[in-house]
C-alpha cells in the first residue's frame, strides 16, 4: 500500500463515518456539523486527485458559505426532533421504497456493461506543474462551454430574483430608516431659536 493510498483510505473512512453521522445523529446541529466534516474530507480526497481548484472551491462555497447559512437556519428554528421521530414507522415503507429504487439503480449502473468504468479511457493526467487547474477550468468554461456557462448563470439569477420576490412583503406600518435623510438633517430644519424678553420678577 503506497502512502497516497493510505491517505485516501484514511480520508475515505472519515468521510463514510461523517456521512453516517449526518443521518444518525439526533441533534440537527450535530448533523449539520457532520455534513461539514463530510464536505471537508471530500475536498481532501479531491486534493489527492490534484484538483486543487475544485477542492478549495468546495471548502470555500459549501463549507464556508452554504453550510454556515444552513447551520444558521437550523439553530434559529430550534427543531424539536421528537415529533419527527414519531412518524418513523408511518413513513418507513415510502423510505424503504425510495432506498430500494436508488440501490437498484446504483447496482444496475455499476454492473451494466456500458456504464462500467473500464469502458471509458482513463482521462489524460495533466500535472499541476504544467498547467494550473484554474487556467484549465477557465479555458474550458469561457471557450468551449461559454453558452452553457452563461445559461447556468442566468438560471441562478432567475433563482435569486424568485427567492427575493417570494420573501418580499410590503408592510405599510413598518418603520424604515432613510439614511440619506438622516445624514441630510440640518439644524435649521429641526431647531427654532426664539428671542423673547426676560420675565419680570414677580
Amino acid at each position: 500500500m503506497t502512502f497516497e493510498l493510505f491517505i485516501f483510505y484514511f480520508f475515505a473512512a472519515i468521510m463514510v463515518f461523517a456521512a453516517t453521522g449526518v443521518i444518525t445523529s439526533r441533534n440537527p446541529v450535530h448533523s449539520a456539523m457532520f455534513l461539514v466534516l463530510t464536505f471537508f474530507t471530500c475536498a481532501a480526497i479531491w486534493l489527492l486527485l490534484e484538483a486543487e481548484f475544485l477542492a478549495i472551491t468546495l471548502v470555500l462555497v459549501y463549507v464556508g458559505a452554504v453550510m454556515v447559512l444552513f447551520l444558521f437556519v437550523v439553530m434559529m428554528l430550534d427543531v424539536n426532533v421528537e415529533p419527527l421521530r414519531e412518524g418513523f414507522v408511518k413513513y418507513l415503507p415510502v423510505g424503504l421504497l425510495v432506498g430500494v429504487i436508488m440501490l437498484v439503480e446504483m447496482v444496475f449502473l455499476i454492473t451494466q456493461k456500458y456504464f462500467r468504468a473500464d469502458q471509458y479511457p482513463i482521462p489524460e493526467r495533466v500535472g499541476a506543474d504544467e498547467l494550473s487547474n484554474t487556467e484549465t477550468l477557465g479555458r474550458l468554461l469561457y471557450d468551449n462551454y461559454l453558452f452553457q456557462f452563461e445559461i447556468a448563470a442566468i438560471i441562478l439569477l432567475v433563482a435569486i430574483v424568485a427567492a427575493i420576490s417570494l420573501t418580499m412583503r410590503r408592510r405599510p406600518n413598518t418603520k424604515y430608516q432613510a439614511p440619506a435623510e438622516q445624514v441630510g438633517a440640518s439644524k435649521e430644519g429641526r431647531l427654532r431659536v426664539v428671542q423673547m424678553p426676560s420675565e419680570e420678577r414677580s
Binding site: E52, F53, I56, L60, G64, A65, S132, N133, T134
Partner: peptide, 14 residues
C-alpha cells in the same frame, strides 16, 4: 500553492 488566494479565502471563511 497555485490557487493560494483561493486557499486563504477558504481558510478565513472557516
Amino acid at each position: 500553492v497555485n490557487a493560494g488566494l483561493l486557499y486563504v479565502l477558504a481558510m478565513t471563511s472557516l
